[in-house]
Design a protein around this nucleic acid. Structure first.
Lengths: 158, 158
DNA sequence: TAGCTGACTTTGGTTTTCCTAAGCCAGCGG
DNA sequence: CCGCTGGCTTAGGAAAACCAAAGTCAGCTA
């Protein structure tokens, strides 16, 4: 375990999944754009206005998200309007939903407004509120205190 | 639902739990410091080196994390050494573990090294790998496609 | 009591990020 | 075929973040 800590120094910077995920989505505007996408926003100016960022920044971030494969551009047409492109989540983008959910859950618990949260997220089938929960593959709940961190294959083989 | 989308514009910026959570932890170095804390790092220079940030930045971020109540400073003493302070996660900080876990999980799936991830996180009791899962309060798994977003109390009362 | 080490802080300069304001272009409606 | 609207891009400048290098300070250890 001490060895592990030593080795970590070298590896955590270069081969850490958390760091890589943050690299892709770890800034305010990117995460908020993904929030919007997960809420159903599709049009450019809606993204910019609802996230509260300027158009140049929205354009740059959306372009990056498309390049990274988190969003996809698709042509669409509303009746009586011209064709345009919309931004929708890819599978890769959808799979960030646990991250957004975990952030929302923490915000609800520790930084909520008196009036309560402004959105409620629920299971389509039964209407119950949805949370991000830590669980092990054996099916147990695994709260923060019951978790061990060990070297993984990428570290052992180094 | 259309009404909801209209109202959202005004509220999402000011009263959004996701935005507030991002406000507190939504930048690269803060999240990586919390990763380190959750892995057991406690000393100042270990934090700075393992996260790969300069000392001034580490000092500023750690100070902010303590001010926000995510980390706590506690005096400690190793045998034969002088007393000093260590940084440990508070409960508020521990509850960000689902966020870190969800990020790691996404990074493992979409941005992993050939050799595999550098850490393995497992349940203390049974040794099985730990993941962040979306689940509703009725106990069902709730994958991305089965989730509805609705206005919450903070929006309804506006 | 002099030196050393860990834990910062200060300084100065570079890089990144973001905003406002203005401009551009495509296509539908008139 | 002219103008409007949505969806961007460009230009210029202000603000924030970050780094390296050097300095400070407290309390062991010798």
């Amino acid at each position: 375990m001490t060895d592990f800590l030593e080795q970590r120094d070298a590896w955590l910077t270069t081969n850490c999944s958390i760091a890589r995920a943050i690299e892709a989505v770890g800034n305010r505007s990117t995460l908020l754009l993904l929030r919007e996408a997960s809420f159903g926003t599709r049009r450019f100016d809606d993204f910019a206005r609802r996230v509260g960022i300027s158009e140049p920044v929205a354009a740059a971030r959306l372009k990056q998200l498309v390049a990274d494969g988190l969003l996809e551009r698709r042509p669409y047409q509303q009746p009586g309007q011209r064709t345009r492109d919309e931004y929708v989540l890819t599978r890769k983008g959808q799979e960030l939903l646990p991250v957004l959910t975990a952030l929302r859950q923490w915000g609800d618990a520790w930084a909520a407004d008196e009036a309560g949260p402004s959105v409620r997220v629920q299971h389509h089938d039964c209407g119950a509120a949805v949370h991000a929960r830590l669980r092990c593959e054996a099916g147990h709940d695994a709260p923060p205190g019951e978790i061990d961190v060990l070297p993984g294959p990428g570290l052992l083989r180094a």
